[in-house]
Simulated scan of single mutants.
Amino acid sequence: MCYDIAFTTKIESIFKIMPLLQTAPGANLQFDATYHKIGMSYPQWPIVVNHEGPQLALFNWGPIPKMLNTPEKVKRQRQMFLNARSEKVLEPKTLWNAIRTQRCLIPVTGFFEYREVPGLKNKVPYYIKSQEQEVFFIAGLWALSNSWDVDKPERIPTFSLLTRSANNVMRQIHNGGDNAGRMPMMLTNELAEEWIKPDLTDTDIRDVLQYEQPSDTLQFWTVNSVRKAKPDDASVIAEINYEGLPPVTV
């Protein structure tokens, strides 16, 4: 699953992609470029929602469902809700189906995944981005969550990132673990605008979620592990060569 994302440019670039985008009332959009954020740190991230038009605000990654009703449960289980399978959005009696009208967009410049390679002890990390545009959108769902913070008892806006079955390139990269063969639910700019329209029917939602990002539109290369502490700078996505690594075919 996708737990590692990047936004390596200025937040103003999102407004260039969506000319009608407005800053959400009262929103503080102070957000510095970052080469890596891990979902398990539950960071704030710029999120596009539609409240009488597209608006940008900072949400925390990782909803806290009502079932997580103690700080201990939040600590143990919140990471299970960082991502959501797109197939669950239209599955009755699921959390994601219940909030399917609360759709959002997650702007990123890239994301990271790990590849299992026979003969290598450790998985090989890759950085993946769009060849066609610096910033692209991933489909998501948002929810107001209990913060469980005694200093901030109010409910906080949170989001979950949608994933789908992987295309050919991502099947080769994300090829191990319990959630092998998945990738973020990347959208074209046109589908991104469609995704946050308030009047989508379930059929419309299904149509958007059937989109598969073509393999030949992805750019990818191997990097150092992003799960080790390092400066938040361009060295995070610098290409690193791994000897004897079989190629990923497009």
Rank of each mutant, 00 (worst) to 15 (best):
3 Y>V: 04
7 F>S: 03
17 I>N: 03
19 P>R: 14
20 L>Q: 13
21 L>E: 07
22 Q>A: 10
30 Q>Y: 11
35 Y>I: 10
45 W>Q: 04
46 P>G: 11
47 I>E: 04
47 I>Q: 03
48 V>N: 01
56 L>M: 01
60 N>P: 01
64 I>L: 02
64 I>N: 06
66 K>F: 11
68 L>M: 04
71 P>C: 10
75 K>M: 07
85 R>V: 04
86 S>D: 12
87 E>V: 03
89 V>Q: 12
93 K>S: 13
93 K>M: 10
94 T>W: 01
95 L>N: 05
95 L>I: 09
98 A>P: 00
98 A>K: 12
99 I>C: 05
102 Q>T: 09
109 T>E: 08
111 F>I: 02
113 E>L: 07
115 R>L: 05
116 E>K: 13
118 P>W: 08
119 G>S: 02
126 Y>N: 00
132 E>H: 12
135 V>L: 05
137 F>Q: 10
140 G>L: 03
141 L>K: 03
143 A>E: 12
148 W>R: 13
151 D>M: 12
154 E>P: 09
154 E>K: 14
155 R>W: 14
156 I>D: 13
157 P>W: 09
158 T>G: 09
168 N>I: 06
170 M>R: 04
179 N>L: 14
185 M>C: 14
189 N>D: 14
191 L>I: 03
199 D>N: 15
201 T>E: 07
205 I>P: 00
206 R>F: 07
207 D>T: 12
209 L>G: 04
210 Q>P: 00
211 Y>K: 04
211 Y>R: 02
224 N>S: 15
229 A>G: 06
230 K>H: 10
230 K>Y: 02
233 D>P: 09
243 E>Y: 05
244 G>L: 10
246 P>W: 06
248 V>L: 13
248 V>W: 01
249 T>H: 05
